[in-house]
């Protein structure tokens, strides 16, 4: 398939909107120090100050600038979300895909392993990793990917099972095409939308799980992330502060995940030439 993904992505409205939003977010994350007059960890002395000229989004419970935290939080949340989702998607495509293709004992082994892994609530590996490994961004990404992949692998496998039996694949097999050919020519393109959906879901869950980790207190407390901001803000919902402290990271998160979903939406068109208009 010779498709210029990029050109098609640019053609669709959703693709453009998603691209612009993602670029904007990445730009904001990269340029955080330039865009914010404050350091996210600095104690400004003004506690719970509402939004104003001094602090565009007000300050939090210890007098840190919420705007600065929002910008710097974008870095962590984007890195953790994308990193973990990418890693998990790769893993799930590899394991779910091969399990679906090869079938037999191999398939059964992985599916039962997935069952076993799925029922372990994420808190337990999180506590174990937090206890025995020194927390860093890489460890967090790896942990989240490890939590995410089993579920995704099952979705991929189910899709492969269904694809395997469809007409084009069956036809190719009758013509004596090797599995490699079928994989590259038929399965991977057909798998596209599912992988994209899986990735978008992965980003979502990774970001949420990261917030959960901060609830348990695992990680480096000095690293600002949107999840961490929300967890802190949740303790003060009896005051008005949630309007400028809880809402911005929540909406930013929703915007980010929305942007990724838009991209996924646009890519789906690219992967399906038949549906292109």
């Amino acid at each position: 398939m010779h498709v210029d993904y990029w050109a098609h992505l640019k053609q669709s409205n959703a693709g453009r909107a998603g691209l612009i939003l993602v670029c904007l977010l990445v730009g904001v994350a990269v340029l955080a120090p330039v865009l914010s007059p404050w350091n996210p960890g600095a104690y400004t002395g003004a506690i719970f100050s509402p939004p104003g000229r001094e602090h565009w989004l007000g300050t939090n419970d210890v007098g840190q600038d919420v705007w600065a935290q929002l910008l710097f939080g974008a870095r962590t949340s984007l890195a953790v979300g994308c990193g973990a989702a990418l890693l998990a998607t790769l893993l799930s495509a590899l394991i779910g895909g091969t399990a679906g293709l090869l079938g037999g004992l191999y398939d059964r082994f992985w599916m039962r392993a997935v069952d076993a892994l799925l029922v372990i609530p994420p808190v337990i590996p999180a506590i174990l990793v937090g206890a025995y490994l020194r927390p860093s961004l890489a460890v967090t990404v790896a942990l989240l990917a490890a939590i995410l992949w089993p579920g995704e692998a099952r979705v991929v496998r189910a899709q492969i099972l269904s694809l395997k039996e469809r007409a084009p694949v069956a036809a190719a097999r009758t013509f004596g095409a090797g599995w490699g050919h079928i994989l590259v020519r038929h399965l991977i393109p057909e798998l596209g939308p599912v992988l994209v959906a899986v990735f978008v879901q992965g980003v979502r869950r990774a970001v949420f799980l990261e917030a959960g980790l901060s609830f348990l207190g695992i990680g480096d407390p000095a690293v600002v992330s949107w999840g961490r901001m929300m967890q802190h803000a949740l303790r003060f919902t009896y005051l008005d502060v949630w309007k400028w402290w809880l809402l911005p990271p929540g909406l930013a998160l929703s915007l980010t995940l929305g942007a990724f979903a838009l991209l996924g939406f646009a890519l789906e068109t690219v992967f399906h030439p038949r549906l292109r208009r």
Binding site: R204, L246, G250, L253, S254, L257
Partner: peptide
């Protein structure tokens, strides 16, 4: 591609980005 689809899709994308504790807290408040 039609408007109903666009509305539903945007709503799903927007709401889907809310963590459960966030959405729950806003509803409770």
């Amino acid at each position: 591609g039609r408007p109903q689809d666009a509305v539903l899709l945007s709503a799903a994308l927007f709401l889907g980005g809310f963590p459960d504790f966030f959405a729950g807290t806003l509803l409770l408040l």
